[in-house]
Design a protein around this nucleic acid. Structure first.
Length: 800
RNA sequence: GCGGGUAUGGCGGAAUCGGAAGACGCGCCGGAUUUAGGAUCCGGUGGGCAACCGUACAGGUUCGACCCCUGUUACCCGCACCA
């Protein structure tokens, strides 16, 4: 067969599209399978091979599922709101809407050229007002249920992008988009109360099939710790300072307290503080530091003693000094700690530097040299003395605190509420109206979508105001509640909003009465298999689980967890082994590969290059190897004749069907393809195969190389589309050989091999091995101490 | 620092349960074909002349270890003064 990918690939793409063969049915007797891939951000740079890898895994699985008789939903869409497009607009003056439409067109063309079996009738675009109407709708439902609040807060602010960032977007003190240093700034911030769902986001992980590393990352991100709150009375006042600790058992060893530089107690008692100037100076110094410097560079403990404030330890009754120091963060716990230098490294370091007393309360270490963190008998601790385990001592301390009414057991999370606004144009407008009389009033549901007004200038305002604030006709409005003059919120939602629920919209993308029809939600949910990148494991994945759980709580979706199973593909590195990036010039463009080698080769190589879940460098010569393989496949019809099976090849076919079937399920695509290559080599060695066998071969290859295999199928006179033909079955009995080659070892060293019938009885097998012409001389005159037989595998003689 | 992971030929990577290490592909070497190059086809390819030696390093368990145990090193990812 003549194999010209430039002709056959467009031919089959056109036929699939005309016949709509990858369209999912909303009601079907077949079992359903919902495969989800992370929809792309349509950037101006176009698609690189990494995108293709991200979709290829579930592409193969979806194609196999269809051949297995499933009703498969494999949708695609575009996550189009976001900064790169807006920055492009600022630079060039091209409206984000125009740029987005162009980029979507470009991405669509590229995806179609690769021949993905997406259901193109369900495409969504998060920037389409018919889509973001429902993003706003969900936001308002959250508002209604008290999950949205506004607060003045110190926020992560990127001075370059002029935008407020969530903790997730400013990891390491760098802006996730432009990588400049993030500074702290006081701003009005919209929050989503994700912390209310912290425990359920944690608990839900036990019921889903995610790889352990993904679960661990989410667990770390949520960061639950259990401990206790305790109130330390401020001497000479009726007030007390509340602390959080995971080690209430060590409270008798607390010899000082530390509060965060921003702690409000300073302002409250500034009249009592004698060294206020010193403290203000310290606080200012801290504010200048970025979060990054504060956490990474400031290894040396710094701080100032607050003269004039003393606190009383609620259990020991001891009066202790209070320090201000930046090793305590306002954002975690209560912003105040009790310091137990004998049993905490940071407190130990601080106490040493400031000459504060260190009291040992757990036996087992040498506190003159280092803090002791381990278990041991409690000492110097009043009613706790003699207790030998941390667990018991913690419980005893907490019940005492509760009895005295000065504390209680409690939990803390590292996860913070989700800062949900950006001072940017290219996002969903937050549908809230500020009225002087009524306060924050939601835009009525029947006025949704609240459409982004057209603007000419996309530059953020001074101090990071949204460009929307400059548009009077947008800002000025009537309060929906009292009718008086009011102002619209001008901030927009963050990029993560639209992607938090897109998998629901695929189920009913054109619905204008609901985000999706309940029957369709019931039919398709949950997502059976979700694949995406590791970089989205702590952000998008947690956010979307949170939204889904909320929708479940208000009865809008039928299940609590959106994704049954999650996997993550590894990166494709550049040919130089480095992460692909424009600046390094090592980006491989999909169009170039499709043009030169064809979509089938591209798809095949991407899955053959290595473990799907691991990173691997691109190699053009290896791409050629895949091309060679498909060329050889294209030649098979030339040697195929007759029907039925070829006895010499039949067991190999059964083995290959089994291996390919099982490997695909485990995403071991590389070994599945290797098995097909091996089978091809066997066929060519034999020199012939039957038409029936060739049909099996191309069915197995179809999910990987659908265009070529469809072409061969047509040439063979196959009925309908190969893409919808039945997946081959194998006979387990035929996957095992009747004769097996068994290795013979002497003292664990390979000395020869013997051919044995399958499951040969022990005595017979050993006798044959002993009599083997190579083995027999080596056993002559030695003493056989032990004979080991692993059936069908190995024989080992232990001799002396 | 804490948590997770990885380490196998010149390269990407294989190896159900502890049972013949290096499947498959690339590259390389030799040959055929070709005016030549490319492409294609055939053969070879962990190291060593050999006995043997080889899965990051040092030990251990075992008839037998890439696989299990102890220790070490290097690299990658995530979190990071989380009280």
């Amino acid at each position: 067969m003549k194999y010209n990918h430039r002709i056959i690939e467009p031919k089959w793409q056109k036929r699939w599209e005309e016949q709509q063969i990858f369209r999912a049915e909303d009601n079907s007797d077949k079992p359903k399978f919902y495969a989800l891939v992370e929809f792309p951000y349509p950037s101006g740079a176009g698609m690189h091979v990494g995108h293709i890898k991200a979709y290829s895994g579930l592409e193969v699985i979806s194609r196999r599922r269809r051949m297995q008789g499933y009703n498969v939903l494999f949708p695609i869409g575009f996550d189009s709101f976001g900064l790169p497009t807006e920055n492009y607009a600022i630079r060039t003056g091209v409206h984000p809407r125009v740029a987005t439409d162009e980029n979507i067109k470009k991405f669509t063309a590229q995806l179609r050229r690769v021949g993905f079996s997406f259901d193109w009738s369900r495409t969504v675009d998060t920037t389409d007002e018919k889509y973001y109407k429902w993003t706003q709708w969900i936001f308002l439902r959250m508002f209604e249920h008290g999950l949205v609040f506004r607060d003045k807060a110190l926020v992560n602010y990127c001075p370059s992008c002029c935008v407020v960032l969530s903790n997730e977007d400013s990891q390491g003190g760098k802006c996730d988009i432009c990588h400049s240093d993030v500074v702290q700034k006081s701003k009005d911030v919209w929050y989503l109360r994700i912390t209310k769902y912290a425990d359920r986001l944690l608990g839900g992980l036990e019921r889903v099939d995610y790889p352990p590393n993904i679960k661990q990352q989410q667990i770390n991100w949520i960061g639950k710790s259990t401990g206790a709150f305790a109130d330390f009375r401020l001497v000479g006042t009726d007030d007390s300072l509340r602390i959080y600790t995971t080690r209430p058992d060590t409270m008798f060893g607390a010899t000082f307290m530390v509060i965060a530089p921003e702690h409000p107690i300073i302002e409250k008692y500034k009249d009592r503080i004698k060294n206020l100037d010193e403290i203000y100076a310290y606080r200012e110094e801290c504010a200048k530091k970025t979060e990054f410097e504060r956490t990474q560079l400031a290894k040396e403990k710094t701080g100032v003693k607050i003269e004039g404030l003393k606190a009383q330890n609620p259990l020991s009754g001891r009066t202790i000094p209070v320090y201000i120091a930046d090793y305590v963060m306002m954002g975690y716990g209560t912003g105040a700690i009790m310091a137990v230098p004998a049993h905490d490294e940071r407190d130990y370091e601080f106490a040493r530097k400031f000459g504060i007393e260190i009291i040992e309360v757990i036996k087992g270490g040498d506190i003159s040299k280092a803090p002791y963190i381990g278990e041991g008998e409690m000492i110097n601790s009043g009613f706790l003395n003699g207790i030998k385990t941390v667990k018991e001592a913690v419980a005893a301390a907490i019940s005492k605190l509760e009895e005295l009414g000065v504390g209680c057991g409690g939990v803390q999370y590292k996860m913070k509420d989700w800062a949900f606004n950006r001072q940017r144009y290219w996002g969903e407008p937050i549908p809230i109206i500020h009225c002087n009389k009524c306060g924050m009033v939601p835009v009525p549901y029947d006025e949704l979508p609240l459409v982004l007004p057209p603007v000419d200038n996309f530059e953020p305002g001074e101090g990071g105001e949204s460009p929307l604030a400059k548009i009077e006709e947008f800002v000025n409005c009537k309060c929906p509640r009292c009718g008086s003059g009011a102002k619209r919120e001008t901030d927009t939602m963050p990029q993560w909003a639209g992607s938090s629920w897109y998998f629901l919209r695929y189920l009913d993308p054109d619905n204008d009465r609901a985000f999706a029809d309940p029957d369709k939600l019931r039919y398709w949910l949950p997502v059976d298999w979700y694949n995406g990148g590791m970089e989205h494991v702590t952000r998008h994945l947690i956010y979307s689980r949170f939204w889904h759980k909320f929708l479940y709580d208000i009865g809008e979706v039928p299940c609590d967890e959106p994704y049954d199973k999650r996997t993550a593909q590894g990166l494709i590195l550049g040919p130089d082994g480095e992460k692909m990036s424009k600046s390094k010039g090592n980006v491989v463009d999909t169009n170039d590969v499709v043009e030169e080698f064809g979509a089938d080769v591209l798809r095949l190589y991407i899955l053959f290059m290595g473990d799907y879940e691991k990173a691997a460098p691109w190699s053009e010569s290896s791409v050629r190897g895949c091309k060679r393989f498909l060329d050889k496949v294209a030649a098979l019809p030339g040697i195929a004749k007759g029907q039925g099976v070829t006895p010499a090849l039949d067991p190999k076919f059964h083995k290959t069907i089994k291996k390919v079937s099982l490997d695909i399920e485990e995403m071991k695509f590389n070994t599945a393809i290797a098995a097909l290559m091996t089978l091809l080599n066997d066929i060519n060695e034999h020199g012939a195969l039957t038409i029936d066998e060739l049909k099996i071969f191309i069915k197995l290859l179809c999910p990987f190389a659908p265009h070529l295999t469809e072409e061969i199928w047509e040439e063979l006179g196959g009925e309908g589309f190969l893409s919808l033909a039945a997946w081959p079955e194998y006979d387990e009995a035929k996957t095992v050989d009747e004769q097996v080659e068994v290795a013979v070892q002497i003292n664990g060293r390979l000395r020869g091999t013997v051919m044995l019938p399958l499951d040969c009885p022990r005595d017979e097998a050993l006798a044959i091995a002993r009599a083997d012409e190579k083995i027999a001389p080596m056993l002559a005159g030695v003493n056989i101490v032990k004979e080991i037989l692993v059936p069908n595998r190995i024989i080992n003689f232990v001799v002396k």
